[in-house]
Design a protein around this nucleic acid. Structure first.
Length: 598
DNA sequence: GCCGTTTTCGGCCCGACTGTTTTCAGTCG
């Protein structure tokens, strides 16, 4: 067992301690080592290109949809973009010995805790190094103390204002929300945009940034608009009821903190360059870098203002984002794909898939009612689903193992099924399918006998207990459930809850392969706190040919709205309508649900 | 350190802001 001697700051997320066991090093842990190496090399003043190479490698590994172990076994490490001889060799050393000599040596050249300082906004490599060597601080907490004690201000190039700024950021770090779940950020952004539109004349108004890309969590909210009267917009924005504090306010840009501690930036931009600005501020940063690198080779220079021909010096502006991509010889790329995951190359070849859209969804296959822990009746849920234009909805209340959720036993389930059948007869607009979200017990057996499941139209199975099982047991447990001929869908496969619960230990490759083999669909649970499968899992599952089901897990009528988060996640995983079972018509899905003869 | 419809060597993304300067270093997105 080897323990990396990293900082222990409570503020730092990126530099938390991590334990590493030989042979089980996770991709994220390996990625972190390379990110640290990049940071240290930067501090050391190494070539920025070398630094960037390590950063790129780290990011590639972080986003890798498969385990490094597997690529190592197959001798495919160098297939990873940004991984060449040197990094491949270092990955091999890390995976086989659990340590990396180069890394340890590099770390030993610097004071302990140096890297934790990099997490403070306004503190980069140069400042961090000087603070750590000249002032001797080893953590954000120590830095704050040093500043208050006046041991920092006055150092060369660290004037009062700089130090004041650092202190402000340090204090903000303690109180500021870290990453905000999409499910919180998106409604807030929409609420603010709506109020803004009521108060003042705005033309285009959109949310850019990671929100537009439907990332599961976002750092802040970026709004962009065009208007004939920028000043009035900025003023109205700063005065919105959600605003608690105005951080900065200029002629065309304002930054505020809302009452919930979330930073929102608004930019008012010219209509004629709205397209390229929107493109720029939608990101991701890495996507934009990839675009610029490519443009550079073609003698073009990209910026938020437009595309410049390097030879002639002339700049073209773009009112529409689409035209920006077309000018680069690229198919327009949907925001959800802009993560530098090969989308630029695909766009070049005209092979960006026709992604699944909200309108493709024909029904919801995971919904609760007041029979278990939902708060609406079967009929209310069904009518609300019909109002959304769905062809079908599956009622999937909990099974008896979820006592706390008022789970249904055999008798109550039968009673509910007859209510559903009767309702289905009455309702013209929508078909109500009888289902259940059945517990997968610790040993992988189901919490409901086969002869009862046999009578249902849809069976969704999920883990809700014994989540601490090791990977081997948990994987065997889930695979066993998938082999049941009654189970159609595995719900929220990793059981993660954003900011609350880590995913369970599960061999996802094995789950994906078994899903293909048994024809079981895996759910993209659309609850914003779950989004499980997450985007990178969806990407990998899809690549292997897994069928997916987007379910809202609605416990109230309003929760049916969550579907859009599930669709966004599916889009981030490059899904087209054919990848998702609940885009099928009623007739087709009925046939699919009967595929195993149940 | 990586990588190739200019290259196996010589390149490698762009602009703005801030504070501290008197021409620019450092940081950020």
């Amino acid at each position: 067992m080897y323990r990396f001697q990293l900082g222990t700051s409570v503020i730092s997320l990126r530099h938390l301690e991590c334990e590493v066991r030989v042979g089980t090093m996770k991709n994220s842990e390996v990625a972190k080592v390379f990110q640290d190496i990049a940071d240290l090399l930067e501090i050391k003043g190494e070539s920025p290109f070398k630094v960037r190479a390590y950063q790129r490698g780290a990011r590639s590994i972080e986003q890798l949809p498969v385990q490094l172990e597997q690529l190592l076994k197959q001798g495919q490490l160098k297939e990873i973009p940004g991984v060449g001889d040197a990094i491949a060799k270092k990955i091999t050393e890390l995976l086989t010995t659990g340590r990396l000599e180069y890394y340890e040596k590099l770390r030993s050249e610097f004071p302990e805790g140096l890297l934790t300082l990099l997490d403070i906004p306004g503190v980069g490599p140069k400042t961090a190094y000087r603070l750590s060597t000249e002032v001797g601080v080893r953590s954000p907490e120590e830095l704050e103390k040093a500043i208050v004690e006046g041991r920092v201000a006055g150092l060369f190039r660290l004037g009062d204002k700089t130090v004041e700024n650092i202190l402000r950021h340090l204090q903000a770090l303690r109180t500021k929300e870290q990453r905000i779940p999409l499910g919180v950020a998106l409604p807030l952004a929409e609420e603010m945009m709506e109020s803004l539109q009521q108060r003042v004349e705005v033309h285009d108004l959109v949310a850019a940034g990671s929100l537009r890309r439907f990332k599961d969590t976002v750092g802040d909210i970026d709004l962009m608009c065009t208007s004939a009267d920028a000043g009035a917009v900025i003023e109205a924005f700063s005065a919105l009821p959600q605003v608690a504090e105005v951080l900065a306010r200029g002629g065309t840009k304002a930054s505020v903190i809302t009452d919930r501690g979330i930073q929102v930036d608004l930019r008012v931009v010219d209509e004629e360059s709205f397209g390229s600005l929107l493109q720029h501020f939608t990101g991701s940063k890495q996507h934009n870098v990839a675009l610029r690198e490519r443009a550079h080779r073609a003698g073009l220079k990209l910026s938020e203002y437009g595309i410049t021909d390097v030879l002639s010096g002339g700049m073209e502006k773009f009112a529409r984002e689409e035209d920006f991509y077309l000018r680069l010889g690229l198919q327009p790329i949907p925001p959800e794909l802009r993560e530098d995951m090969g989308e630029v190359e695909r766009a070049e070849q005209g092979r960006i898939p026709e992604l699944l859209g909200p309108g493709d969804v024909k029904g919801d296959l995971h919904v609760h009612t007041n029979w278990s822990d939902g708060n609406a009746s079967v009929e209310d849920m069904a009518r609300a689903a019909a109002a959304r234009g769905y062809q079908y909805i599956a009622v999937t209340d909990h099974s008896k193992g979820r006592g706390i959720a008022n789970g249904l036993n055999e008798a109550r389930l039968r009673e509910q099924v007859s209510e559903i059948r009767a309702l289905d007869q009455r309702l013209q607009q929508i078909t109500v399918l009888a289902g259940m979200e059945v517990d997968i017990r610790a040993d992988g057996s189901l919490d409901m006998p086969d002869d009862v499941l046999e009578e249902l139209d849809v069976v969704v199975a999920a883990v809700h207990s014994a989540m601490g099982q090791d990977e081997d047991r948990m994987t065997r447990r889930v695979l066993r459930a998938m082999h049941s001929r009654h189970v159609d869908i595995i719900a929220h496969p990793t059981c993660r809850l954003l900011r609350e619960r880590e995913p369970v230990a599960l061999d996802m490759e094995a789950v994906f392969r078994t899903a293909v083999e048994t024809g079981t669909a895996l759910e993209i649970n659309a609850m914003p706190a779950r989004l499980d499968l997450k985007d990178s899992h969806v990407l990998r599952a899809r690549e292997l040919g897994v069928r997916l089901a987007i379910g809202t897990d609605a416990h109230a009528v309003g929760h049916l709205e969550y579907m859009r988060f599930g669709v966004g996640t599916a889009r981030r995983g490059w899904c087209d309508p054919g990848d998702v079972v609940n885009t099928m018509s009623l007739e087709a899905i009925s046939a699919w649900l009967k595929r195993r003869g149940s």
